[in-house]
């Protein structure tokens, strides 16, 4: 189990993230999980200075739009673009939008990290 994770609704996300920004926390990363019919996104923050970590978790449908946190933490720009192209998470208004081709090239498979994604083999066999 991971400690200090708080479940939030999609609409509360920005307000909760703002609280971390006001507390001078450092954004660590976000993790996206494919739960079958839904996506689970967890944002992790480190309470600087120190090594205490807190998380915000929200569960959204695959076709729901999600607000971007880049207005509060610029550094989330990479991870939001990555979640967008790997999982098809619909994040709107990212500060720098790579248009689904930050890591993936034009001819790469689309949303390869989804469980249903036909994404090549295991490697190394």
């Amino acid at each position: 189990m991971i400690e200090n994770i708080k479940e939030v609704k999609k609409d509360e996300l920005l307000a909760e993230v703002k609280k971390f920004a006001d507390a001078k926390a450092r954004f660590v990363t976000a993790v996206c999980n494919d739960l079958g019919d839904k996506l689970e996104v967890t944002y992790f923050f480190n309470m600087s200075p120190g090594m205490e970590m807190h998380g915000l978790r929200m569960t959204v449908g695959k076709d729901e739009e999600v607000p971007s946190t880049t207005g509060i933490f610029l550094t989330t720009v990479l991870i939001e673009n990555e979640m967008k192209e790997m999982f098809g998470l619909k994040v709107k208004d990212i500060a720098i939008d790579f248009g689904g081709h930050m890591l993936l090239a034009q001819d790469s498979p689309v949303t390869p990290m989804l469980k249903t994604g036909a994404a090549g083999g295991k490697g190394g066999e």
């Binding site: 081709h101 930050m102 890591l103 993936l104 090239a105 390869p112 990290m113 994604g117 994404a119 090549g120 083999g121 295991k122 490697g123 190394g124």
Partner: peptide
């Protein structure tokens, strides 16, 4: 970026 992307996270799920 993207010149070094291989897809290790996906490969880790499959292995």
């Amino acid at each position: 970026i993207g010149y070094g992307h291989r897809g290790i996270e996906k490969a880790c799920e499959l292995n």
